[in-house]
């Protein structure tokens, strides 16, 4: 491997951009393909598919074997609300390799004691979200029930590319939320990105059960949907 290729791989990762190293296993020839440049690469479809899965592996093209080293950024979960569900969600999300950040301006909630080993920001979402870059590898869960705190985060998320937006609240609460978002100029296509009521419908009752259903929905959004879309495209 060329040292310049390795430096490019590491730089792309540091910038939270997906990147692939293509190695021809016969000749040893290599090239670095940032995900944004994948469409122009001869192996574009194979690279795009691997980036979505976030998995390295051998692929075949025209009878040749290539190894694709896929570097996808670590998936991040921003939780708005240092509430009871968040206390259960933070550890289970970490188990699934998500980087968890809890955001809540209420200093009585956002304490390190309530969230051991977790990054907790006792700030308003509109103050900290611009610096956190809501990219395609970021999920956002709104859990406060308080429009003053949730809404600014939701507006930022809808304007960004995050792969998952979930919002806690009954259907009635959500209907009101959608009305407020329409007043902010969002259209139904934007609002369809919001998972609400949050979490897979597994009949979750306790905060821990709700946390599991939220995590499952996030994993589904990360892994499953692109694949389903591909199936539909092929059909």
């Amino acid at each position: 491997m060329r040292a310049s290729d390795l430096a490019l791989l590491n730089a792309e990762r540091a910038a939270r951009r997906a990147v692939v190293l293509v190695t021809d296993l016969e000749s040893g020839a290599q090239r670095v393909v940032p995900a944004a440049s994948a469409p122009a690469d001869p192996l574009s479809d194979l690279i795009t598919q691997r980036v979505r899965l976030g998995k390295s592996g051998i692929v075949q093209d025209n009878g040749r074997d290539y190894f694709l080293t896929v570097q996808a950024p670590p998936v991040r979960l921003l939780v708005i609300g240092a509430v009871h569900i968040s206390q259960a969600l933070a550890p289970v999300a970490r188990l699934a390799d998500l980087d968890v950040i809890i955001i809540d301006p209420r200093t009585a909630f956002a304490t390190p004691e309530r969230f051991p080993d977790t990054t907790v920001l006792a700030e308003w979402p509109d103050d900290v979200l611009p610096g956190l870059k809501l990219d395609p590898y970021t999920a956002l869960a709104l859990l406060t029930h308080d429009p003053k705190i949730d809404d600014p985060a939701l507006i930022a998320a809808l304007r960004a590319e995050c792969f998952y937006i979930g919002a806690l609240g009954s259907r009635k609460t959500h209907a009101k939320r959608l009305d407020r978002m329409r007043e902010h100029g969002f259209h139904d296509a934007d609002l369809a990105r919001i998972h609400a009521p949050i979490g897979l419908d597994i009949g979750a009752v306790s905060p821990a059960e709700i946390a599991v259903s939220v995590l499952a929905e996030i994993i589904g959004a990360l892994r499953k949907k692109p694949l389903r879309a591909e199936v539909e495209k092929a059909a």
Binding site: M1, A3, L6, N10, L25, K55, I58, F67
Partner: peptide, 30 residues
Amino acid sequence: LQAQAWKEAGRSVAIATVIETWGSAPRPVG
């Protein structure tokens, strides 16, 4: 990142990568 740091510090470096596994391999591809 460490490989890059070693190289920049003037050390000779090789990189080994798991490219294929069958059965119950202990470390994943990549």
